[in-house]
Design a protein around this nucleic acid. Structure first.
Lengths: 331, 331
DNA sequence: AAAGCGACTGGAAACGCTTCCAATTCGGAA
DNA sequence: TTCCGAATTGGAAGCGTTTCCAGTCGCTTT
């Protein structure tokens, strides 16, 4: 414990080599003799030396950190299970890559803060997880950092991974038809969101293929309340409907509530299929049959794209993830 | 748009001053003539110049970012409303300080990862929000970065903010006594946690002061199940109890369930006061009277301490936050 | 009118690291 | 034995900022 070892120079001196050699020893050790390597490593271990990241990144132009950016109000981020799972997925992709992963949230309208963060040089790149498609995407894309998106960024030309919404909706609808439903309605999400439009399109396509006409399509705004109200409108217009394909579990939970209130038994009178396979799906009575929307899987894919972007490759994109049907009590 | 402006040198040249002057103009502008200042600013605006943070932090030893560290599994972080609120509190404290705030999670046992992050130089300091007192604190304290804690770090000598657990429990207990309760029991949290021990101590003190003896004290492990079981044991031992002070809303929810099952009316037969004033408090029937445990307030206080630590001051600590009683239906 | 003072300015020295390049060493081929 | 190339090595040149320090210049003070 003679003198403190703080800089690479100190390490080099203590190990009896030049700073250049010490640096090489620390970074992969190409062209370093075993002898020198050992000496450097010993000193490093012994004194717990850590290279100064600022100095390092000044020359390498690379900082060793990426961010998961969630352009949503932080309250929402924590209440919607989609985001944590996405974060977790990204984490696993970067687990053994010695990149640090941090989570950054900001109101979607405050894209300035996010762009500033990207430009600040505190991260090498980011994966953006949002339900708000292109509003932000175009702003973010201006930042000169590699970005990948979970969920299509709309018209912006950037790598993304997306669920195959259309074919998922198709699967759900065909399942209902297969179970004997004929008077089928749909509760839709906002059509300016890919998840909303795609699911409705898939529903309509499947119905069309089966030679059936939807008995109703009502928007539900992706909320419980909206689902509840939509179901009421549907029942008013078509008391005899025998199935509803709902574009999210949250809305489905609302619909279930309405159906119960109106005296319909599920699934005997009306079958319900939700979407997202989220925790609420098991809290309703009966539990919801639902399509998966695996955030962890998608985020992991996006993270891998980012990783290859960072290492200079051009990854193939978009990556399309297939959704699966999970059967529970409601259909 | 002749040549690209990337470095301070470029800016200086374009503005017709020296690099030193340009730097001064960018940083507060002390000892810079209005003329030079204007010239530099014009160039900066025009070309959207951004100083290289690595170079800057290499000399200033200051990176302009702090982290909120939550040493918990990420699933828990997102499911427990305490953390998001704490994060939000920290965010507001740093809102106009041009520090970037990021969130870092890690399993508590993986303190290595956290320490590495702190040492990595990617942040200037951190605020640690945890329910696990000193287990980690001692590991983290080794990192040579300013830290502040939300919740006492135990024996570790570091600035922290903590709820006044004892007097909060006292308030709750005195409220029950004031409402006429005499045969009062307590469902306690783990005694190795400050929140557990402090609340029990406050309960006992208040009872003692009123000349009453607790009719029972049972541990509930801060879980719904634990609270349920504890209430059963209490009722078995003392069927006539007329009030329970429970050390958390989660446990209180369990106790409410047991009381209902055993035919007790709340608050007519048995009054219940919970703790944390968390969302579950309004989901029980009746809703829980509870003591506040405001994570946002605490985190904001911790953030302010960190801020003054970073600017070289020695903040006063510990900061003790007072809890308040929120009256609802259960007592 | 000379001296002194304060506001500005630019040169140059860090900050701690990576990496190019020339020099050295060593073993084996000729 | 001599020569050549591969493996190591250290010197030195940056990377883009900030900041110390010694000047310069225009005024006020005596």
């Amino acid at each position: 414990m003679a003198e403190a070892i703080r800089t690479l120079d100190d390490v080099a001196r203590a190990a009896g080599v030049s700073r250049a050699t010490a640096s090489r020893a620390l970074n992969g050790g190409r062209n370093v003799s075993p002898r020198a390597m050992a000496a450097v490593m010993r000193v490093v271990q012994e004194h717990g030396y850590q290279p100064n990241p600022a100095a390092r990144s000044l020359v390498t132009r690379h900082i060793g950190a990426i961010a998961v950016i969630v352009p949503e109000a932080d309250e929402l981020v924590f209440s919607d299970p989609f985001f944590p799972q996405a974060y977790h997925g990204a984490l696993t992709a970067f687990k053994d890559s010695d990149y640090q992963v941090t989570l950054v949230m900001a109101e979607p309208q405050d894209s300035g803060r996010i762009v500033r963060y990207l430009e600040s040089g505190l991260v090498d790149g980011a994966i953006v997880v949002s339900h708000h498609g292109q509003e932000l995407a175009s702003a973010l894309a201006k930042a000169s950092r590699p970005l990948t998106f979970v969920g299509s960024p709309g018209i912006v030309d950037a790598p993304f991974v997306e669920l195959d919404q259309v074919s998922a909706a198709r699967t759900a609808t065909e399942y209902l038809i297969g179970k004997g439903a004929r008077r089928i309605a749909h509760i839709a999400g906002p059509l300016d969101m890919n998840a909303g439009a795609g699911r409705q399109a898939g529903f309509e396509a499947a119905m069309d293929d089966a030679g059936l006409a939807p008995v109703g399509i009502e928007p539900g705004g992706f909320t419980i309340r909206g689902g509840q109200a939509a179901a009421e409108r549907l029942l008013d217009a078509e008391p005899d409907l025998d199935a509803i394909f709902v574009a999210s579990d949250l809305m489905a939970a609302g619909a279930v509530r309405t159906l119960g209130k109106r005296g319909r038994r599920i699934p005997a009178d009306v079958m319900v299929v939700g979407f997202d396979n989220s925790p609420v799906a098991v809290q309703t009575l009966p539990a919801l049959t639902s399509m998966t929307n695996p955030p962890a899987v998608m985020a992991e894919a996006a993270a891998k794209m980012l990783l290859s972007l960072l290492s200079g490759d051009g990854p193939e994109w978009p990556v399309i993830i297939q959704s699966e049907l999970v059967v529970r009590g409601s259909a």
